[in-house]
Amino acid sequence: MEKMVIANDEFFVPVRQMLEEGHSVTIPVKGFSMLPFIRGERDLVVLEPVGEVRPDDIVLFHIGPEKGGRYVMHRVLSVAGDRVEIQGDGVPVNRERVLRSQIFGKAVSILRDGEKAVDPYSPRELRKVHLWQALRPVRRYLLFIYRNLPWNRRWLKPQYAEALKQYED
């Protein structure tokens, strides 16, 4: 089937609208900033309207126009009142600091290869996430190894590694 490429903002406007009306929404994932937990071009994500935002939540949010005004899905690191700090699992250093009002969806299920549903907040998954976060000082190298595993190279083409660079310092 032919792949249809739609500009980020245009794609997410109806997604956001559906979430705001209370629907759950299934979306494809682009990019690799949530590696190794969500794999762009392979996995799908089921989103729901977001209630309380908590650390470890994978959230869809809108980053301000000063950073390109795009919609991004990353993981919450910490919440302090209305201020939320977010970072992609596959991003070595950069973080986003946003307001609660910029967040409008929470991932409730990851469909591996579009099929096998994984609960991203099961104790088992969260253990992996916390281990991954503890290894943040060497994340850059782990990502390099991950991207170059023979079975990953096939789908993680060089241009995607290129796409990750925008998140690096």
Binding site: M4, V15, M18, S24, V25, T26, P28
Partner: peptide, 10 residues
């Protein structure tokens, strides 16, 4: 329950 944006028929 769910709105699917992963399969669109153009």
């Amino acid at each position: 329950k769910n709105v699917n944006f992963s399969k669109l028929v153009s």
